[in-house]
Amino acid sequence: MTDATLSVSFAGPHVTIQDAGRPGLMRYGVPASGPMDRSSFRLANAALGNTADHPGIEVSLGGLTLQCLSGAVTLALAGGGFIAETPNRTLGTWNIFTLKAGETLTIRPGPWGSWTYLAFAGNLQAKQWLGSGATHGSSGFGGGKLTTGQSLTITNAQTRPDREGRISCPVWARPRHVLRCTLGPQDRFFDAETLTTFTTARFEMTDAFDRMGLRLRGPALVPVEALSIPSEPILRGSVQVSGDGTATVLLSDHQTTGGYPKIATVISYDLDSFVQCRPRDAVAFQTIPPQQAIETTRQRASRFAAFEDRIRQR
């Protein structure tokens, strides 16, 4: 049983410690947080045989450089198509490799994707809040944002040469530009023409994004009655429309209630691949009935489970 110590030589904005999140507390104003792309995060942990709620690091387009000060630890990198400069060679995401004392790892954006996940063969020490180390961005509660100069401790750090090498990247982990959603729950605040615009127009990702939500550019979806509706509970994936008709897709650290009408709600799995799109990518919404949303989710969940098992058994 030995520790590894890493020093953060550089961390871009929105680089945070995450685990599977803290669901169940929205009634107290606390969103679940957790990874933006939950599927890739799970796969990074599965690649090392870890449980799904094992803490790891979410890396944004801002990138991350870590230096190993002591010990050694095997790492898995999954999510997006980033570049990892490791001591021996330059790798893409979807790889397992080992970092030893004196060595440096730099993760930077590559050909595609907006988020990547670093999982550890060992226990990354993360400050807990309400039973989870997931970082809630706007408060900084939980494991927290990584800052340059900070050090990280991995207890029970292991090297796993048996697991090193490539992991296959499933096709559904790639960016998704058509988002399946159900209409509502406040679609009644939009006229028929606006609802048609919503389902037929192309929207563009903007660079106005953080872990709370992502603003889209596109035709204005102006509500018919800009009346003040009493604040309603919000789900991750809600497409919230402000008074001027701008749509924002709400993500991991979303506010739990809000008074803007929600024209539609994106299904969970599609959010994972939506967040891997980049600013200026085009996206469109495809509305489906709730029953189809459930069927799609069940099929996808069984495919995911089978894939995760294969990666875990490697």
Partner: peptide
């Protein structure tokens, strides 16, 4: 989980 607000209640469930 359930999330109470002013005039509505959100109920989240496991779709599996």
């Amino acid at each position: 989980e359930a999330v109470p607000a002013f005039v509505n209640l959100l109920v989240e469930f496991d779709p599996l």
